[in-house]
């Protein structure tokens, strides 16, 4: 009943004490190591630390390193192929599993498509190692084919997610309207469904590309000799004394992934507006 009331900041319903601080720390912790890694890629010294001045020499070294060139080309080749194949397959599957009345087996299809997300990568890697070893010893066929199909498989769920989300947000009436205007189902698909689906397909393929580009475990297990990708090359290098060259490669790879994800983010933001 004391009329004097202490002046305090207005009561906020959503505030929880300390949460902002922890969140801030989390963001710092998420980015600090990555930023450190990038910074030291410009180190002039022979080792990662201490800092001995700014230099681009490690980028030059990486650029001139034939093993790196070779692994980079292979990584890109693999990621592009896996990205395209998995997107095509995922698009078809998404068309077959969305906007439909539940039919028998639908749940099984979902489970199957999402299965690579549930099984630990190491188990899939071992399984593929065994399978491919069997096939190789039976038929003698070698080549990139194995890596491509493995990457395609585990990229499917990542490509599937955004495409399916896009399809579910789409207005069914548009296609009905097209059919009403005498478009054949095929024409409707090419002229109405596919263009509308396009942002989802772009997002899906980019995700698939990034996922394939970043894969270490499965590739490490099933690659034959001479089939290093950039990540497996780096994993191999980590066993030795590491030079800032690894930082330089990492920075480039990071830059690639981050620009793809940023691009996705802004494309999605614009398409929502």
């Amino acid at each position: 009943m004391i009329p004097f009331i202490k002046k305090r900041p207005p009561f906020s319903l959503k505030r929880q004490p300390g949460f902002g601080l922890i969140a801030g720390l989390c963001f710092v912790m998420l980015y600090a190591p990555i930023i450190t890694l990038v910074v030291y890629s410009f180190n002039a010294g022979k080792y990662i630390s201490p800092w001995e001045g700014f230099s681009l020499q490690w980028y030059v070294a990486a650029w001139g390193n034939e093993a790196v060139q070779d692994a980079t080309m292979r990584s890109l080749f693999l990621a592009v192929q896996a990205g395209i194949y998995s997107t095509v397959l995922a698009t078809m599957a998404a068309l077959g599993t969305t906007r439909t009345r539940p039919f028998r087996g639908l749940m099984a299809i979902y489970a199957m498509i999402n299965q690579p997300l549930m099984v630990p990568e190491i188990v899939t890697a071992v399984a593929l190692l065994i399978l491919f070893a069997m096939i190789k010893s039976l038929t003698g066929i070698q080549g990139m084919f194995y890596l491509v199909i493995a990457h395609t498989a585990f990229c499917i769920p990542f490509a599937y997610l955004p495409i399916r989300a896009r399809l579910e947000g789409m207005d069914l009436n548009l296609e009905t309207a097209a059919a009403d205007l005498y478009a054949t189902p095929w024409k409707t698909f090419w002229r109405v469904t596919l263009p509308l689906l396009f942002p989802g397909i772009i997002a899906g393929s980019m995700l698939a590309f990034v996922i394939s580009l970043d894969d270490v475990v499965i590739t490490e297990f099933i690659k034959s000799s001479g089939q290093e990708t950039l990540p497996t090359y780096m994993l191999g290098q980590l066993r030795r004394v590491v030079t800032p060259e690894i930082n330089a490669i990492s920075t480039v790879l990071l830059g690639l992934s981050i620009s793809v994800v940023c691009l996705l983010f802004f494309v999605e933001r614009r398409s929502r507006k």
């Binding site: 194949y85 397959l89 995922a90 078809m92 599957a93 068309l95 077959g96 599993t97 439909t100 039919f103 028998r104 087996g105 639908l106 299809i109 199957m112 498509i113 299965q115 690579p116 099984v119 188990v123 899939t124 071992v126 399984a127 593929l128 065994i130 399978l131 069997m134 199909i149 493995a150 395609t152 498989a153 585990f154 499917i156 599937y160």
Partner: peptide, 26 residues
């Protein structure tokens, strides 16, 4: 339903061949 299965089939085949199927071999 048949159309839906046909559309999903290629993805399922790839997944069966290079992801879930091999688990049985393990």
């Amino acid at each position: 339903t048949r159309k839906n299965w046909l559309l999903s089939a290629p993805a399922l085949v790839v997944l069966a061949a290079a992801s879930s199927g091999p688990l049985l071999i393990v």
